[in-house]
Write a protein that binds this DNA or RNA. Structure first.
Lengths: 296, 296
DNA sequence: AGGTGGCTTTGCATGAATGCACAGCTTGCG
DNA sequence: CGCAAGCTGTGCATTCATGCAAAGCCACCT
């Protein structure tokens, strides 16, 4: 009766010796004592009743049977790697923390309701929602997921385009009542500065030569400033349409629209809880963006 | 960072639980305590950060992630089985005993020289050479290998046809000198009885109506009887040609030839030492059979 | 020729994995 | 309803795998 391999883990040790060429080298790779490796290989050879290695003064060399074994064990290793990659962490009992970064308007008004629903589904995943800048955060792992406005993301990031963010001109009712029949260019404009280049560029194309008298580096502030009646502002419809105290004053051309991306780093995309957040938010945000009348 | 599986042997335990449906059932299959299985599975789930089994009152059931794991681990198990099958025992340091059965003439005169060379190559394999009957021995595992004369072997046996056993008529020099110019049918014939139907049938076709006056159930005896000058006998050339005290008296038709098979049981053909014997004897016997002048 | 660095192999002590015994739960049967 | 059988889960004692330390070998360098 053929011997049966009783401890599959001996194959992992075999692999290390085959690759390192010595017991000592394999021990370093495995993080165990070289005498342990010695005994594991001896046990494996006894179990299989075959000499897998030639004992040389400067190390261990594979025998022909050992080379045949190596081929088989490498396919086993592929299976283990597949297991580690595809199964690890795949569990609704997920826990841990996920950090999401978005510009403030998305962080304040778009994400919270969706995150509330996400937490209902995954009560053990903690969410850290950061209002702030973009590229560096993901590259330096200071955040896990970024909700990014723009066009094409950097190549080091992976993710998906969840939809389009459409814009329109909004103003407070009081302000609008106080400025009837006024040309758009003659209005007081609330604009952005400090890091919102795509939006400021589009505004300059829309109203050339018009310098916004009211400016902020915070999109949320521009929304609140508009609500306060300080002027008109180009605001994302998905947010402004839901504010009863903002009136849609004028449309903006389709070229004003920006893509909305949900991004993470290449190394994190297989992390279960990161995937859970991405998988939940992508369709939710896409639906939210499409529910805007211009979204059709 | 994804966890890495540190002990591949946990997968073997996982497989047992997946198939048994319970810790207790897996423990029985593995020959370990159920508490060991419990801890191994708990450790595996912690390492992979995934729930592989639902805990039910009557046992463990696979989760979706567990089912995905099962598919992967079964491919790993296939690798281990391949390893056990193809590598185990493939070593000149083979040991153990092999029992070979053959009819007496083959056991006495054909096999021993080849077995001597085999033992030179595999000094730690013991050979048990049994003179005796055929089919039952292999089926009942009373022998490992049978050297069989005949045509098609039973379907439960596997093996290979190593060549043809050709026959011719032989007699002792003294007998031949004492019977010059005698018709074949008029000679005293030495024949077989008791279990050598293929040969007795062929002899009856060759010399119809001739009843051998000298009979034995032992082919070896017929050779010795012929050497003793009791008459003529139809003997295998591979044996008789090497006896200087036997003279080839007449040829026999090609239809007299019989196939020689080297057979073992389906379950044994992967046993390393069985394979070693088969791999050695098949070409050796084939060459021996072909070195007979009629073998060309 | 001697020293050094790398390696393998082994005896003994230590700690982790395992078995044992037990408790508790659920289901099925009388 | 009570009991038996099967199961899971856990604390503690035992066993065995592992690490440590040492011995010995070989090749290379000075």
């Amino acid at each position: 009766m053929n011997a049966q391999l009783a401890n599959w883990d001996d194959l992992r040790v075999f692999l290390a010796v085959a690759r390192a060429g010595s017991l000592s080298g394999a021990a370093r790779r495995l993080g165990v004592n070289h005498s342990t490796v010695f005994r594991r290989i001896a046990g494996l050879e006894e179990t299989l009743d075959v000499r897998l290695f030639e004992r040389l003064p400067n190390g261990y060399a594979l025998t022909p049977a050992g080379e045949e074994t190596l081929g088989i064990v490498e396919s086993i290793e592929d299976g283990v790697a597949t297991l580690n990659r595809t199964v690890t962490g795949k569990d609704l009992r997920l826990s841990g923390s996920v950090r999401i970064t978005a510009v403030d308007m998305l962080a304040f008004w778009l994400l919270p309701d969706h995150l509330a629903r996400f937490r209902a589904a995954y009560p053990r995943i903690e969410i850290s929602l950061a209002v702030g800048n973009e590229t560096l955060d993901l590259s330096r792992r200071e955040t896990d997921i970024a909700l990014r406005i723009g066009n094409t993301p950097p190549e080091t990031l992976v993710g998906r385009r969840v939809g389009q963010l459409r814009f329109a001109v909004y103003g407070a009712p009081d302000y609008c009542a106080a400025h009837p029949d006024t040309e758009l260019a003659a209005h007081t404009w609330i604009g952005l500065d400090g890091g919102h280049a795509p939006l400021t560029r589009r505004f300059a194309q829309f109203l050339p030569g018009v310098r916004p008298a009211i400016r902020s580096n915070s999109v949320a502030c521009t929304v609140r400033l508009a609500k306060a009646g300080l002027g008109l502002a180009a605001l994302p419809c998905a947010i402004a349409e839901r504010k009863p105290d903002l009136i849609r004053v004028a449309d903006l051309p389709d070229s004003f629209a920006l893509d909305l991306w949900l991004l993470t780093h290449e190394d994190l995309r297989h992390t279960a809880r990161i995937r859970a957040v991405l998988d939940f938010l992508a369709p939710a945000l896409g639906t939210a963006l499409m529910s805007d009348p211009d979204g059709v």
